[in-house]
């Protein structure tokens, strides 16, 4: 199965084999060195300083723990995650089923595919301010923002996954007298699932963008509020802490999901 994916990150995510224990330990050292390099550079740039509004890494960490300590961070994440999770779940359910339907039925493909191809390539973010204006500052507007950004990539990945299922496996199923339903459940969905999962991860990444934009553009709530507020009062370390935390949070979520997928969902990848 060598589907040429729209996004090479997805391809990479879909086909990243686990490593042996020895190189895993070596990898850990490299990772630590990599982290040290980045944060070290940040610290030095802050000390110089390259800009008055550029705090050191240590000040940012201190601000982060201060916000964790007084509970503002937790409250902000609570507010941010709620619409994010609702939006992601909605997008996942709608997106995967739409994408699979597109891959299986030519008529659905013809009708729906162009819409998502356009949405995928276009800067959908432009619509977010308008969504917020129309649906107010509540949960609805934010959920719509998340879906707007997350849906296209989930739909298109599911669609391509199903359209690029190994034809030889489908022929095999037919030759051993599999019914059309068995073909979908036992061949197409399992064979497509790595690319569908990759699409879901990309969708979650896009959902983070959606929620942050919604929070930054019109209604400062949650993490967006922390960023906007501390910027307004020139508390730059706190602002950086909020930004770095959401970026780190999204990166950790994505790699955590990948780990879960590799170790729980796909037995054939384990220990390879």
């Amino acid at each position: 199965m060598d589907a040429r994916l729209e996004d090479p990150v997805a391809a990479q995510m879909a086909a990243q084999p686990g490593e042996a224990a020895h190189s895993r330990r070596q990898n850990l050292w490299w990772r630590l060195a990599s982290i040290a390099l980045f944060f070290g550079a940040w610290e030095i740039a802050g000390r110089v300083p390259i800009n008055l509004a550029f705090p050191t890494f240590s000040a940012t960490v201190a601000a982060f723990f201060e916000m964790v300590g007084d509970g503002t961070m937790l409250k902000a994440y609570g507010l941010t995650l709620q619409p994010l999770i609702v939006g992601i779940v909605l997008s996942a359910v709608i997106g995967v089923s739409t994408g699979v339907a597109m891959g299986l039925r030519k008529s659905v493909e013809w009708m729906v595919a162009p819409v998502f191809i356009v949405l995928q390539a276009a800067p959908v973010a432009a619509v977010i301010p308008m969504v917020t204006f129309v649906y107010g500052i509540g949960l609805t507007a934010k959920v719509i923002s998340v879906c707007l950004l997350a849906l296209p990539v989930i739909v298109l990945n599911s669609y391509k996954a199903v359209a690029n299922v190994n034809p030889s496996l489908v022929a095999m199923c037919r030759s051993f007298l599999g019914s059309p339903w068995q073909q979908i459940v036992k061949i197409i969905l399992p064979d497509a699932s790595p690319v569908i999962f990759a699409g879901l991860r990309l969708g979650i990444g896009a959902g983070f963008v959606g929620i942050i934009l919604a929070e930054l553009l019109i209604t400062p709530t949650g993490i967006g509020d922390l960023i906007t507020y501390h910027r307004a009062v020139a508390n730059y370390a706190h602002m950086y802490a909020a930004i770095a935390s959401i970026i780190a949070f999204s990166a950790l979520t994505l790699s955590g999901l990948q780990w879960v997928e590799e170790n729980w969902v796909r037995p054939e990848k384990r220990g390879s």
């Binding site: 022929a171 051993f176 007298l177 019914s179 036992k186 399992p190 064979d191 796909r266 054939e268």
Partner: peptide, 29 residues
């Protein structure tokens, strides 16, 4: 039909299934 069975050039094995399940797949269907 059940009176013919095919062996594929590229093997056409389910990558997510064990040897046991692959061999029994025709019967599973």
């Amino acid at each position: 039909g059940p009176e013919r069975a095919f062996v594929f050039q590229d093997f056409a094995l389910l990558p997510w299934a064990t040897v046991l399940r692959n061999v029994g797949f025709g019967l599973e269907l």
